[in-house]
Nucleic acid binder design. Sequence first.
DNA 1: TATAGATTGTGTTATTTTGTTATAAGGCGA
DNA 2: TCGCCTTATAACAAAATAACACAATCTATA
Lengths: 195, 195
Amino acid sequence: MLPLERKKRIRSLIEKERHIKIAELSNRFGVSEMTIHRDLKPLLEEGCIAKTFGGVAWKQDGQEANTKVQGCVYCGRGYSERLAYRLILSNNRMETACCAHCGLLRHSQIGGEVMQAICSDFLTHTTISAPLSWFVMDTSVHMGCCHPQVLTFEWKEYAEKFVKGFGGHVYSFEVAKTVLVQKMNGGQNNCHSQK
Amino acid sequence: MLPLERKKRIRSLIEKERHIKIAELSNRFGVSEMTIHRDLKPLLEEGCIAKTFGGVAWKQDGQEANTKVQGCVYCGRGYSERLAYRLILSNNRMETACCAHCGLLRHSQIGGEVMQAICSDFLTHTTISAPLSWFVMDTSVHMGCCHPQVLTFEWKEYAEKFVKGFGGHVYSFEVAKTVLVQKMNGGQNNCHSQK
DNA sequence: TATAGATTGTGTTATTTTGTTATAAGGCGA
DNA sequence: TCGCCTTATAACAAAATAACACAATCTATA
């Protein structure tokens, strides 16, 4: 078996069994324990498993998120839960973008791999499905994340009411993606807090 | 079984059974009592269990005390950081209200003792001084906290823009307190999610 | 074929875990 | 309160495991 294949299988085995001994992995794959330790090293650094004495344990996503606050998958910036845009991919991995701006761009980039996309209603913070959300751009409220700014709303009616007060335009998911890409190509290539 | 896995199981076992003998745990997991004692040590320090002579007992309140999110000082309900209204008193104690509704009422109640009052801008979540904030009531957006609902804004301009879209009225701090008390006395005495 | 790089196994040392023994302390009946 | 039994704690030794260094093996490429 190729090393890479072994590593993949080890990963899925841990994910499935939750806890497993190094010795058992060594037996199962017919390699020395030292090799198993070496195979586990990248997984450990990635943060999806934890070593215990004598074995490994799968780290739940919740824990992972707690211990490791990674940056936005698109711009690398830190993010808050409030504006975050999450992409659940076909390989069961999750990517987090700092805001809908980066989320929509990333979504456009890797569209085929995305199984689910979720974001948060700007007013109520309810979790919503991105493709069903409404997106507001060019508004006068600035959250200081990325530019051009994109705010997300659960209901079209509320997005429109928001625009009535604070200006801007309301877009559906597909249109928002197109418009955003156009805006980004229209000379404003920088992401963060640019006017 | 891996040590970590055993520790987890011991924890959930105690939580489930409420109290259990050390000897039984020793039997159940096939390790010496000394090992069980060692496994219990971190749980003990964490405060979620209590040792009795010969056994352990689950401490309900102990754990709650550690992780405890206290309720609103006025209505007792749990609160989110987003809507919370905090009162710093002259004796250096801090009180937290679940939202501006309860915060303003509490503020009116113990006015003299309050040194500082802080809340959060509804749009940006910036922390702001309550007496300098602008308060929106009777709007069509409902956050599901207390009724009559009060939203807080850093800038009057933004509060007005919000009202333009979502309806309602903008009040300064002093006026908001008065209006709220009037509304509460006008027959709508209940606090939570009442229409 | 020769060579560089990657992968793997082995032996050694350091660390962690566990059980045993000895000692201290708590519970309980007389 | 005293004495007896049970349980808790501490110290030590043994076993299991991790980490490291180095050598051997394998793979790809010129």
